[in-house]
Design a protein around this nucleic acid. Sequence first.
DNA 1: AAACCCACCTGATCGC
DNA 2: TGCGATCAGGTGGGTT
Length: 309
Amino acid sequence: MPELPEVEVVRAGLAPAVTGAQIVGVTVHDERALTRHTGGAAEFEAALTGRSVRAAVRRGKFLWLPLEPTAAGAAPAREALIGHLGMSGQLLLRAPGAAPERHERVRIDLHHPVHGELCVVFADQRTFGSLAVDRLVPTSDDAPGGYGWGEASVPAQVAHIARDPLDPAFSDRAFRAALGRKDTAIKRVLLDQTTVSGVGNIYADEALWAARIHPGTPARALSARAAGRLLAEVRAVLEKALAEGGTSFDEQYVNVNGEAGYFAHSLNVYGRQGRACPRCGTPIVREAFMNRSSHRCPRCQRVRAGVRR
DNA sequence: AAACCCACCTGATCGC
DNA sequence: TGCGATCAGGTGGGTT
């Protein structure tokens, strides 16, 4: 469920707490939380115990904690602990020995040289999220791999994820060129994380509404002007949502302290079917799209809006 | 090769 | 009260 703003809230909360801390204990309660990890629970625990965390980094909806190399004698592989929250994952900062969270899957105990003991709990109702230890590989463009760390590396399994639109190394020109080659609906391109990352169902609908583009518009039919407008609106909605702490409909999405964000109050179309479009008053419609839903204004976002002929 | 579908899960809600 | 259908913020593997 979390999209870029929610994941960034988590990264920003984790960073000051875990940077420089050493992992002193790992408990896997449910192996389904390791679907992105190649080994089993015991191997995961062993791979992390004793390692120190160097940073908290994010690209799109993926988070990772780069780790100090293992002690002398072991293979000097550069590795990171990856986290993906899936639809319902949470990373929570708790006091050592804190009572188990609902849906707690993994607990990581750390020792920070300044702040002392703390624990990071991974809780996830639907189990689509997961943690993994993965090796870091160089980025193909030599730019930093994500937000939060200057090193030009990404976990191997994140290498296929595109940069997100808030990344300084994101290329607007390459994005517009890529749209011209896509034989599919613009909303599919926004949701597929290999052209632009970080956008999910909520912010795709919000950005398309703001740019007055129908979600089913063929990507390559968008004029350069419409594509530029869309990208600007994607950035605007992601930044505004981030400033408001993300979108929380219930207790599912929370920051590392368990607190909800406020952006749900600022939604213009998502989940507002039947209510007036804030721009023109026409009732918002909800339509089936890719086994989920799209929300749009039938007047502001007509099929041909923004289409070049 | 790009585009598309669907499985992977738990839980809340709604209509009957 | 129960019970089935539907819905929920994502991703990746398998199939066309």
